[in-house]
Design a protein around this nucleic acid. Structure first.
Length: 597
RNA sequence: GUGCCCGUAGCUCAACCGGAUAGAGCAUCCGCCUUCUAAGCGGACGGUUGCAGGUUCGAGUCCUGCCGGGCACGCCA
């Protein structure tokens, strides 16, 4: 299964080779001038530069070499030496029918599947997810689907942030606020004298601590820890105690994790995001002592200012990278320690060829340090760990997104706000009375998710973007709901066709709008493979948008049901195929189109 | 201070190893529902790609400098 771009590229490459020129000059791209051609090849320009010849002469010779190619309706030389190619109707129709019967709707697979682990979401204990988690979740989920569809063996891991100093801070803050609980925890720290009543009393008291409490206590504790040295030292000691699994602290921590997870599951589910693995930092904690020993044995660890570090600076670095801090001066494991242990754990349990970390761009240096340390330690091979950084989501003022009160907007609230907008719009469209309440609610969710996800994924991940709910959910123009709406229109037409007992048939060309649509259907593989190579779903989002837009033009220009005979049959197939590819692209982006909206 | 990223239409964003006339959406204006969902389609308007140099037949894209913005720079994660 080869798309037209590559098929023509092969023909061009052969023509270049016939002139003793390198085949890569035959690279074919969609035409920049659709009024002049379907595809173009610019290879004559660099060829002429190298040989000191006139590019138009080379282009003319290439064109002569293509004479008689049945795929081509015309080959023309334009400008300084562009080779303009127009595909023949016969070949285009043939390709259209090929895509129509292909279960993958024209998309190829990778030649050598790899084992890929994608680390995304990154929720933390005690902190409800906020808008900052949105991008990681949306991006990671889409990459997971794209990689999987391309044929790799992929697992997604939430990588729960449930360990470390923050937990020590939190335990301290909770105990301070609940003196009764504090006493119980101290008692439980000596389990040999624990009574049944104490165990039950602990459970009852712990259960009164909600996620909202944790969310309130943590920022205050973190702030105080920065200023108050004694408070900070105590939190560090508690962290060490927790890491030693002192029973009272450990049980309290388990409660924190449980409470948090319930809320996380709800938010992820609402976004259509799910994980194959729900590993946490705490899961690799047990590996750390042996890992530190191993690093020490191999003389990678150095003592520095009371801490133990791995130096990762290399010659030729443009600036000095900080070392990886493996053991803090207080004796506890650090963020980077856990990340390194996670690399080791994944090597042992999954053996990935590639690990992608969908994490905020601001952590680029941190990951560079961890990756270098992992390579030095032999836990990963160079290049197998990749940080997929992304920019921040800003408010309409251009600054990192805040609520009107200046706080951080919780992800759940954001989703609910978007759903409210979707409900309003659906009601305006009169769907409130047409659909059963559950179906209405489900449709509102699908529209809301599409609004959020498309707004995010249509931007290149590396850049920051402005979050503007009114714009995203206006449902007009380049938005998620627009994509869903186009899918819904096709579904509606196909439903009617089925009701009328109409049959689809082979695709034939009768109108320029059909040509355009088929050329776009053919471009799916390029969009998908480029999104895969660059880990950039925005390229796929762009394709989905163009497909929806091109279909809409086709829909306006070419009546489907009112047409007759073979033309109607052909257009029905074209509509079916467009729907299949559009729904597939939406699925890879993490969206789903309802039947009506 | 050092390093990384960014600067494109009034606004939000694209632009496939450097290629023809830099594209979409929103906003503004004009047109299109007695044919399939008008959340739609067509058209108009809108650009010195931050500034100044350089490389090249050709630069939004590569190089240098400057201006402006964001971010990161070991004991939080």
């Amino acid at each position: 299964m080869t798309d037209l771009k590559h098929r023509l590229g092969d023909a061009l490459a052969a023509a270049f080779v016939a002139l003793d020129l390198p085949p890569e000059l035959g690279r074919v791209t969609p035409s920049d001038r659709p009024d002049l051609a379907d595809f173009q090849c610019n290879g004559a320009l660099p060829a002429a530069k190298k040989a000191g010849r006139n590019p138009r002469d080379i282009a003319t010779q290439i064109a002569e070499g293509l004479a008689g190619n049945p795929d081509l309706a015309s080959v023309e030389i334009a400008g300084p030496g562009f080779i303009n190619l127009r595909i023949s109707d016969a070949r285009l129709a043939q390709r259209a029918n090929e895509i129509a019967t292909d279960p993958r709707v024209g998309a190829d697979q990778v030649e050598a599947p790899r084992r890929v682990l994608i680390d995304y979401g990154g929720p933390n204990v005690a902190k409800p997810m906020h808008v900052g988690h949105l991008r990681s979740s949306i991006l990671g989920e889409s990459l997971k689907r794209i990689f999987r569809f391309r044929g790799d063996e992929v697992v997604g891991d939430a990588h729960f942030g449930d360990w470390g100093y923050q937990m020590g801070l939190l335990i301290g803050a909770v105990l301070d606020e609940n003196p009764g609980l504090s006493g119980l925890v101290e008692r439980l720290n000596s389990p040999e004298t624990e009574t049944v009543t104490e165990g039950e009393a602990f459970k009852a008291q712990a259960d009164t601590i909600t996620l909202a409490d944790l969310d309130r206590l943590y920022p205050a504790a973190a702030a105080r820890g920065k200023e108050d040295a004694d408070y900070r030292d105590r939190a560090r000691r508690l962290t060490v105690e927790l890491q030693a699994k002192r029973p009272g602290y450990y049980r309290l921590w388990q409660h924190f994790a449980r409470v948090t997870q319930v809320a996380l599951a709800r938010d992820f589910h609402a976004l259509g995001v799910d994980f194959d693995l729900w590993r946490g930092e705490s899961d690799v904690d047990g590996l750390i002592p042996d890992m530190v020993h191993d690093l020490d044995q191999r003389a990678l660890l150095m003592d520095d200012q009371g801490a133990r570090i791995i130096r990762v600076a290399r010659q030729g670095d443009k600036r000095e990278l900080p070392p990886l801090l493996v053991v803090s001066s207080a004796g506890s494991a650090m963020y980077g320690t856990t990340d390194l242990a996670t690399v080791l754990d994944r090597k042992q349990t999954f053996g990935p060829d590639l690990v992608l970390y969908a994490v905020d761009q601001r952590q680029a240096d941190h990951f560079e340090v961890v990756f270098r340390a992992a390579v030095l330690a032999g836990y990963a091979v160079e290049g197998s760990l990749e940080h997929i950084g992304f920019g921040t989501m800003n408010g309409t003022d251009g600054k990192p997104f805040k609520t009107r009160e200046g706080g951080v907007l919780k992800l759940n609230d954001l989703i609910e706000m978007t759903r409210t907008k979707a409900r309003e719009r659906l009601t305006e469209a009169g769907l409130g009375s047409e659909l059963a309440p559950e179906a209405f609610e489900q449709t509102a969710s699908q529209v809301a998710v599409a609004a959020l996800k498309f707004a995010d994924l249509s931007n290149y991940r590396g850049t920051s973007y402005v979050f503007d709910l009114d714009r995203f959910s206006s449902f007009e123009g380049k938005t998620g709901p627009y994509l869903l709406y186009q899918a819904v229109r096709v579904k509606s037409v196909l439903r009617r066709a089925t009701d009328q007992g109409l049959q689809a048939g082979p695709i034939q060309l009768t109108d320029p709008a059909e040509r355009e649509l088929i050329l776009l259907l053919d471009a799916f593989d390029s969009a998908l493979s480029e999104a895969y190579d660059k880990r950039a779903p925005n390229l796929l989002a762009e394709h989905a948008y163009k497909l929806a837009q091109t279909f809409s033009r086709f829909y306006a220009a070419c009546p489907i049901l009112p047409a007759e005979g073979a033309v109607r049959a052909s257009r029905l197939t074209l509509a079916q195929t467009t729907l299949k590819q559009l729904e597939l692209a939406l699925d890879l982006l993490g969206m789903h189109a309802p039947d009506r909206m």
